[in-house]
Simulated assay, not measured.
Amino acid sequence: MARPDPGPDPAVVAQQVARTPSGLFPAGPPSRPTYREPHPVTGGGVAVGGAAATAWLLLFGLLGTDVTSYAWWTVLAGLLAWVTALVLIRYGDRGVATGVAIVTAGGWSIAAAVVVVRWATSGDWPLW
């Protein structure tokens, strides 16, 4: 009894059939170069930068003995923090710089609110 002919090998047939890629899935090397961020922003980096800026602003804010000195110490601390954030953006971790910038803006907002409340209740501009 002779064995039936199994036909062509399915792997060979699959290699011979040329398919045109649909474009849905990458079929080969990319036609353009792929660039990667050298210092990607991560959630952990943002949290560390935010915590560091919070401590920084808190320490400088505690140096103030009244609303005027608190506001000026906060402005100074914020400016120093933003200079640090700019250096981190250029040479370091951009996530930490983002956290520093966000918390510094929040700290300045709190200081501005304190000044406005003092101004509204006393009728005298407290910064000079």
Rank of each mutant, 00 (worst) to 15 (best):
V13Y: 12
A81P: 06
Y35F: 12
A71R: 08
G45L: 02
V48Y: 02
W73V: 10
S22Q: 11
V17C: 12
T20L: 12
L59T: 11
A81F: 09
F25Y: 15
R32G: 01
L24W: 12
F25W: 14
Y70S: 04
Q15D: 14
G28I: 04
D66F: 13
G61D: 07
T20C: 10
W72H: 10
P33V: 11
P26G: 09
V17F: 14
L79G: 14
P29C: 02
G78V: 00
W72I: 15
L79P: 06
R19M: 13
V46A: 04
A77S: 03
V46P: 03
L62M: 05
L62S: 01
A71V: 07
F25Q: 14
R32E: 12
G45M: 00
P40M: 05
W73I: 10
W56P: 00
H39Y: 14
T34F: 13
G28A: 08
A47V: 11
L76H: 06
D66R: 08
G28T: 09
G44V: 08
P33I: 13
P33F: 13
G44D: 09
A81K: 05
G23T: 09
T54S: 09
P29S: 09
A81M: 10
P21V: 07
A14V: 07
V12A: 15
Y70M: 04
T65S: 13
V67N: 02
P38R: 08
P40H: 01
P33D: 13
P40E: 06
A77F: 03
G64K: 05
G50M: 05
S22C: 11
S31P: 09
